[in-house]
Design a protein around this nucleic acid. Structure first.
Lengths: 95, 95
DNA sequence: TTTACATTTGACAAATTTTGACAAGCCAAA
DNA sequence: TTTGGCTTGTCAAAATTTGTCAAATGTAAA
């Protein structure tokens, strides 16, 4: 787990930014950003938006990773039936 | 939303059982079963198992619907990116 | 109509989960 | 060593979820 966190870390390091700087921008503790990057905590939707902006990243891309993490944490306990369940969920999405 | 609830109601009515009877079996209030059937509340995993047993239903089928509901509620706010996110989640599921 | 149930609804307290801060700890580079 | 960046564990506050209760609503028979 941690698609979003991995991506954030990658983006942040590529720009030589410190956790502290991202944290300041979002007005949260450094520890929280650390946890988000390592997938120990989930970011809120607003935080994803703010991070995307600060890191000059594509907001939709980050949001997609964020949602993927959410889905993964929903299915992780039930891998055997996850695929079928996603098929059902996806089908009804189209309506 | 409410794949599981719909199915439960269908099974229960086909067997001419009352909410009260299902509730008694699960040792919960009738109102809760009503809410589960109408998708107003989520059942716990254990409740899904107990209901499947009591209604002589396929446990895996009900669990799948239960998980589909969970996934749907995760993606419902982000329909535009849901498909892509599911693809990512599914990909990592295989590992 | 009344009556008798079955179901639904809304409000609520209790329980659980999530959230973010804080402080202490770790680790690598100087 | 010290320094600076990151990580970790713990905690209280906030938010969400859970199931119950009582009242409301629906329904079918008498």
């Amino acid at each position: 787990m941690g698609h979003l966190g991995q991506k954030i870390r990658e983006l942040r390091e590529k720009q030589n930014l410190l956790l502290r700087q991202v944290a300041a921008q979002l007005e949260v503790d450094t520890a929280l950003i650390s946890k988000i990057e390592r997938g120990e905590r989930n970011a809120s939707k607003q935080q994803v938006i703010d991070i995307a902006k600060f890191l000059n990243a594509n907001e939709e891309e980050l949001s997609t990773l964020w949602l993927a993490d959410k889905i993964e944490s929903a299915i992780v306990e039930e891998p055997a039936i996850a695929y079928q369940a996603m098929k059902i969920a996806n089908k009804n999405l189209k309506k």
